[in-house]
Design a protein around this nucleic acid. Sequence first.
DNA 1: GCGGCGGGCTTTTTT
DNA 2: AGCCCGCCGC
Length: 756
Amino acid sequence: MTDIISLLNPAQKEAVETTQGALLILAGPGSGKTRVITHRIAYLLNVAGISPRRILAVTFTNKAANEMKERLNILVGPMAENLTVGTFHAVCAKMLRIDGKTIDLDSDFTIYDRDDQTALIKKVMEKVGISKETIAVNATIAEISKSKSELITPAIYTQKAASFFEKQVANIYKRYQSELVSSKALDFDDIIMQTMHMLQNSETVLKKYQTRYQYVMVDEFQDTSPVQYELVKLLAGSSGNICVVGDADQSIYSWRNADIRNIVNFEKDYLQAKVVRLEQNYRSTGSILGAASAVIAQNKHRKEIKLWTQNGSGEKIVANVCLEPKEEGQYIVKEIESLVTGGKASFKDVAVMYRANAQSRAIEEAFIRYGMPYRLAAGTRFYERKEIKDIVAYMRLMQNPYDSVSLLRVINTPARGLGDKSLNDISLWAENNNILLYDALALLKSAERQVTGLSLRAVKALLSFYQMLESWRQKIDALDLVGLFDLICIDIKYKEYLQSMEDGQERWENVQELRSTLQLHIGLASETLPLVLENIALISDVDSLEEGASAVTLITLHQAKGLEFLAVFIAGVEENILPHIRSVADEGELEEERRLFYVGITRAKKYLYITRCEGRVGYSGFAINDPSRFLNDIPEQYINNKSNSKPRMVIKTPLQYRPWSHYSSSKDAADSGMKTTLNKERFAPWDAPAHYEEKYIEIEPLKQGDKVHHPIFKEGVVLSYKEKGSDAEVVVQFWGEAGQKKLLASFANLTKTGLA
DNA sequence: GCGGCGGGCTTTTTT
DNA sequence: AGCCCGCCGC
């Protein structure tokens, strides 16, 4: 242990050795934060002799939690098993499953993800008669979520509702919450809010957890919401041993109700708190760090932390301007190629980051064209696919038949002759009789069906659906998860259903992939249905990024937080993209955008490339974008600006070689037909017909009077020539019938045949 | 009344 | 890619 301590710098050492009382660790990027947290836990265990059961460590993502567990396993061995390490949601869900009954919550509650939440809100809005033209569904969800993160219940919200919007939301919120309760379901915010409620409600439960967790640690503290902070305070209440680690400059989740003020409040709430600053950066070169510091220094509202490094200044950041996203993707791929062939990096050392998921498309296409291996966090998210959600919904109903969102999702999927009319009738009947939908199905068997006004056909369909679910329920104890899964797929004829669709084959393969994932749980402690379904609900895209794969990582800037790469490309560093167009109007949001850029920059260890396009196709057609204002903040000494915004034209050229076949790693992966769960790594097929690149060739400027040839309009003479961004507008008088034409130089394909 | 199909719109970031 | 909407055939 002493060896471990001796490897730490003085600040890190102080953080590790401060075990009692409140501790605030302000940790700049790359300052060895994870190391400090893990070593602090090891110190608590090995030096202070604390039992692992007394320690709670909360992280932001499952990935971070798993990483921490792995490192601790190495540091302290099997003792690590008894630590509680997890995300807020995972830790709280567990507490609720154990002690939720004290607040009338069944242990087999269902967790609603964002999709389920949307479905339920829509249903509620319909029921209370508020159309989504009146109030946007997303705004409603955001408002409710925000309220929950501040412990504002429907009752309190209703009292305070003043504006028209708030009054509508109050109505929806109240109904939404009661639907959640009758569905035995919790949304993400409920998981935290109900835990809080549970602890406040029962002195016994509170004492139990306060006694159990004598040492509480929170990572990424800047991203905690008000409730999350309250919860942590409550848990650490009796011992007062609370350690939070954060960096206000990396706070990028305010839109998810994270509250940067928690850091300030911490010092007010714990006046005795020791504050440790980790300011030495071990990750990046001087240039990268210098640029990052200069960028973040522009934020007015910040608690200054001065990063420094003993690393050399390294290479300058490379900034490049492209005509459009296609060229940007191509530029990135070619730069990666030269990094790799130059032996400076391998694929897995490289990440491409962007502000919005939509940007990944053009970049991906370049990777596919060149056959360069890549992995994508959040392609079309696996668990959000229809075919996966369908099967998961059926499985959820086995756990909790009152889960109304799942029930309504599958009651007519695959189609069994139940339309809006029938479903409305039965729902209404259930409601009027004050029973839940599932129980209403059970009652159909007896004579009461006349009351419902349902057609005989609908009654039959509903009954056979109900009986199918019940027959599974009877067999469930004898089956493992995969057995249940297979039973469901067969009984609902899901394969046949999918195969009637255009992309049925691929969808069925996805279903099989879900089956393989379930297979992994068999025999483990986590095999129970509630736990598996909980994992599915709480998993995130970064969590499922395959480690060690020989592929370039494509990832959003948000997802990249907490990660590091030898080489980083940040794409689309333009006004309207970064900062995002929806953030520029508000000073606070603009500062968050800047922090986002800062997070991106500080992910890079050695090589950083910043690219931007002069224009791109947006929602409303092609838009010219100025360089991001953040670029001006990077001093010239750190950055190499390449500028080639001369008019250019695009030529497709076939590639004569198989680009990456000489890299065994990627070839092996492709040959083995590599299949990974969740985020598939994708490789362009080797027999892909055309690997081609698009050459962006500078257009030779034309002058008035130049003679030109056009493939269709034939011969003509230039009347005028005007450069417009990276293109040019040419007016030509053709001799033939075409007459006078206004053309774009990049597309017109003009050849100069004579000078003026 | 139900199912299926085509067109339009979507998205900023996500536990 | 998926949802919503309107339309049409059964």
